[in-house]
Write a protein that binds this DNA or RNA. Structure first.
Length: 920
RNA sequence: GGGUGCUUAGCUCAGCUGGUAGAGCAUCGCCUUUACACGGCGAAUGUCGUGGGUUCGAGCCCCUCAGCACCCACCA
């Protein structure tokens, strides 16, 4: 079947993914004779959809995966999805609310059923989208963090850590989200600078008259104050230490303590201490043995530990009431505006309340040390390197990890409580009961801890839980191939949440690092470098880039789901401005090429549809080059059989040589994760060398060459193209497969698919420096001629005579090619240029004269300008060379280079001067 | 408060261990030349953020300042 006249991604993409997948090409290999390559997909939220960040990461992962597969490695790209505890539970709760139902009314069992139903319904969306992008994961091994094997691993890890004393239950001050009503880890708290107030309150002294003034941003917490503190060396307050103040409103006596935590410079130097609701105060409370009352309910209303008057009030209402009462009592000294870092829960945006609460924790210090060591010793390397510091800094200051969540969606904690409240942990109830019995305690099945584990707890084990662990036999079999993973590709935002924890747990349970390399990819921004966000309306859906989308549909989907009218308006405006005609269909290959090209080792990647358009053009270029080659090779003798009479021309040897260099460049770039360099090498080889020059050179060889050289040219055309397709396949899999299916047979290559064909390997012997120099010379002459034509205003189609002098002997052999490419009617090669009024260009490869009408004065002026520039360059070079320190100290090669430059320029100038003289 | 990164052509970015600045897009000419107008050919464009230092030589190394972005942190 003929190739269509131009590249249309839609016509080809849908056919190849099912072809690859159905033939099992994505399946992990287990051949002991081969090297292995493996990569873990950061598991996306199971009910989520593919966004630009995913598409970008996966492009990089797929490039590496396909590349290593073609190189013959055992390859495992391990996919999976995450149950995303809080996020998914929230989505389903919202759905229930919309239907007038509620989680609590349904009850735990029924609610969890509904979440599973939602997971089943939407769970394959993102994996379907991944297939559209071309991601070649081994779907036969796809996991879900709550599937049976992963759940077993979670229980096993929990039990073992508990038995090792690394998981414990304790009453600690934790971050409480009063909206979601669960504990969250410190990583799930985000602090933002917000405008608040700083209030100064008077606390009357218990004895005598007078008061101390304390400053606070949260006056309502005074209901839980159990002390005030001053700095031990603060002379102003030394006399008060050990005495008491009368806590207003509550009318309790609380001590004045001395603690070095107090900053004498801030406020009055006196701090109110609320150990139950502040992390600093908690420490002070511990040091001074203070009571630590909790004054809030789980939904952050004032509880029974505060005076009756405030009970039942929300935190913020209580603040108002407290302030009003203090003011009435004359105890409010001042109110000032104050900027503070407000800690908010990442998921609900609620102001987090520190609460003293019973939770499960993982003791991190030891594991963190191991995690630091393995990176320090180079067992795991970050790319770019600078992220090592970020990793180190976090691990060095790590806190114990609060892993219990008061949610229903997730892995329920495998702990049961004895009647006296002692927790017993086991792989199942029976095991827990045995422990309890041994300890002489009675427990019941229904007294299982209701909490679930942090989502990140389960995803922290995927490096080994996806290789069969805790099944020893399977794990031993598979880890030899795929642990550690070769590389982890992910965003910096989850270095702490995920990467560090995987490294730590894998060290703990497999005794080995999880990854050889950790590649931290850039964050995808819009073309102007702004963060992509729904409310700004500057998000782009990767599927829309692949498939295209009309303006109306784009407007619709960009504004739906936005709650605020102002956001809707901003988004709509932006869509109208940026995408007045919607988004064209660029296809997965162009999208992937764009990602690869923009993938420098920076922190951000500004996604520009214009770039994408350029790379779709590239695909079209490749497509049409293939059409040309097929047109010339189909049904013709391409000289494949041994002993075929085929004479390789210099141009043929040149393009083969350039191909070796392109292959070397791509392979080297991929080894260093320089996807941009790899993409550029492919782009430049295909466009600038193969299409712009070789196809043109080939045309004249096919038109004028003898039988044997035509045969060699056809063979070179088809073989270089075939190798180029393989070279490019990891980046642009669809179009290369489509074209390869047609090209490969003609190139004498068999095989069912390009994705299982071998990756091109450069051969040193095929690098031909002489041919490269020769073609470089030809290009120089052609360029000079083209330049003169354009400067002289010669119509592109017009053929003009050309004279060539002072050129290497080989030039005559390229006469036909030069004539065709530079559109020359007659080419005269001679010792000297004829003396006539014609434009001349001097190049190292010869002097070029076009026989065209000229304006003598204008030509003279042009040459004078050239001469002036040359003179300046000559003066510069002479200056350098006459500087003794330069000649002395600079390396000989540099001095030589400068001398050569001087000589070249001087000779060029002489020629130009001569030509000016001829013009009279 | 601590830390990191960035500042190069109108825009987005490359620039290897220091040797006289590059790409894509955009711009401006001229072209329906038989693979490709998703094309061809040509052109223009930069005191490489500031000030200093090291060096024969600095976009690259060192210091200063300025601007931008991000991360971590319990200052009431």
């Amino acid at each position: 079947m003929e190739l269509a006249k131009s590249f249309d991604p839609h016509a080809i993409e849908p056919r190849w993914y099912p072809f690859w997948e159905s033939r099992g090409y994505f399946k992990a290999g287990f051949d002991p004779a081969k090297q292995s390559f493996s990569i873990q997909l950061p598991p996306p939220n199971v009910t989520g959809t593919l966004h630009m960040g995913h598409a970008y990461q996966q492009t990089l992962m797929d490039v590496l995966t396909r590349y290593h597969r073609m190189k013959g490695y055992n390859v495992l790209w391990q996919p999976g999805t995450d149950h995303a505890g809080i996020a998914t539970q929230m989505v389903v709760e919202r759905q229930l609310e919309a239907k007038g139902e509620s989680r609590r009314a349904l009850g735990r069992e029924e609610f969890v059923k509904r979440v599973w139903a939602w997971k089943e319904e939407s769970g394959s969306t993102i994996t379907r989208q991944m297939r559209r992008l071309g991601s070649s994961c081994d779907w036969s091994r796809e996991y879900f963090t709550m599937d049976e094997p992963r759940s077993r691993a979670v229980t096993e890890v929990f039990v073992r850590l508990f038995e090792a004393g690394l998981i414990y239950r304790g009453k600690r001050l934790i971050h409480w989200d009063p909206v979601l009503q669960t504990a969250v880890s410190d990583l799930e708290v985000e602090s933002r600078e917000e405008n608040g107030s700083l209030w100064q309150l008077r606390y009357p002294l218990a004895e005598g008259t007078g008061h101390l003034v304390v400053a606070t941003t949260r006056p309502e917490t005074m209901l839980g104050d159990t002390a005030v503190a001053v700095h031990p060396e603060d002379d102003r307050y030394a006399a008060f230490v050990g005495k008491q103040v009368r806590l207003p409103l509550s009318d309790r006596l609380i001590p004045i303590v001395a603690d070095a935590y107090v900053d004498r410079e801030f406020g009055t130097g006196v701090v109110k201490i609320t150990p139950g609701h502040d992390f600093n105060d908690y420490q002070v409370g511990v040091r001074h043995g203070l009571p630590m009352p909790c004054i809030f309910t789980l939904d952050a209303k004032v509880n029974e530990n505060a005076p009756a008057k405030y009970q039942g009030l929300d935190r913020f209402a209580a603040r108002k009431a407290v302030l009003a009462d203090l003011e009435a009592a004359g105890l409010l000294e001042s109110t000032k505006p104050h900027k503070l870092m407000q800690p908010r829960s990442q998921r609900s945006d609620a102001v987090v309340e520190p609460m003293l609460s019973d939770q499960w924790f993982v003791c991190m210090v030891g594991m963190a040390k191991a995690g630091l060591d393995v990176v320090a010793k180079g067992g795991t390397q970050f790319v770019p390197e600078e992220w090592t510091k970020v990793y180190n800094q976090w691990l060095a200051n790590i806190q114990d990890w609060c892993i219990s969540r008061q949610l229903w969606w997730g892995h329920q904690i495998p702990a049961w409580y004895a009647d006296d409240g002692t927790p017993f942990v086991g792989r199942d109830f029976e095991e827990a009961r045995r422990h309890a019995t041994a300890a002489g305690k009675a427990i019941r099945d229904e007294r299982r801890d209701p909490d679930v584990l942090d989502t990140w707890f389960s995803s922290a084990f995927v490096p080994f839980s996806t290789l069969g662990w805790p099944d020893e036999a399977q794990f031993e079999r598979e880890r030899r191939f795929y642990l550690p993973s070769t590389v982890m590709i992910t965003g910096f935002d989850i270095i702490f949440f995920w990467v560090a924890r995987m490294i730590m747990t894998t060290l703990q349970f497999a005794g080995e690092t999880a990854f050889r390399d950790v590649y931290i990819n850039a964050i995808v921004r819009d073309a102007e470098g702004n963060k992509m966000s729904k409310s700004k309306g500057n998000t782009i859906d990767p599927l829309d880039v692949i498939d295209g989308i009309g303006f109306e549909a784009l407007l619709d989907k960009s504004t739906q789901g936005l709650m605020l009218a102002s956001h809707k308006e901003t988004a709509a405006k932006r869509i109208k401005r940026e995408f007045p005609a919607g988004i064209e269909a660029y296809g997965a290959d162009a999208l992937r090429f764009t990602f690869a090209s923009l993938s420098t080792l920076g922190r951000t990647l500004n996604f520009d549809l214009k770039r994408c358009e350029g790379y779709r053009s590239f695909c079209n270029k490749l497509w049409n080059a293939t059409r040309f080659v097929l047109m010339n090779c189909e049904g013709k003798d391409v000289g494949l059989e041994a002993g075929a009479n085929a004479t390789m021309s210099v141009a043929d040897r040149w393009i083969v040589s350039r191909l070796q260099r392109a292959e070397t460049a791509v392979i080297g770039a991929l080894a260093e994760y320089r996807f941009d360099v790899a993409a550029r090498a492919v782009y430049e080889f295909v466009w600038d060398e193969y299409c712009d020059w070789y196809l043109e050179l080939a045309k004249s060889q096919l038109a004028a060459g003898d039988e044997a050289s035509q045969r060699a040219t056809r063979r070179t055309l088809i073989r270089v193209l075939e190798a180029t397709l393989r070279l490019a396949h990891p980046i642009i899999p669809f179009i290369t497969e489509e074209l390869w299916q047609k090209v490969a047979p003609l190139a004498g290559k068999s095989g069912d698919s390009i994705m299982v064909a071998p990756y091109p390997q450069p051969e040193e012997a095929k690098v031909d420096v002489a041919a490269e120099a020769e073609i470089a010379g030809v290009k120089e002459i052609v360029n000079a001629a083209r330049n003169l034509r354009s400067t002289m205003g010669v119509a592109p189609a017009a053929r003009v005579p050309m004279y060539l002098a002072d050129c290497p002997g080989y030039m005559a052999a390229h006469a036909e090619a030069i004539k065709a490419i530079a559109r020359i009617s007659e080419l005269h090669v001679a010792e000297e240029l004829p003396a006539r009024d014609a434009p001349v260009t001097v190049t190292p490869a010869g002097r070029v004269m076009l026989h065209v009408e000229i304006d003598r004065a204008a030509e003279k002026a042009r040459l004078e300008k050239l001469a002036a520039r040359l003179e300046a360059e000559i003066a510069n070079a002479k200056g350098k060379l006459s500087n003794p320190t330069f000649v002395d100290k600079a390396p000989a090669a540099v001095v030589e280079q400068e001398k050569k430059r001087l000589a070249d320029k001087e000779s060029e100038l002489a020629q130009i001067r001569a030509q000016i003289a001829k013009l009279g």
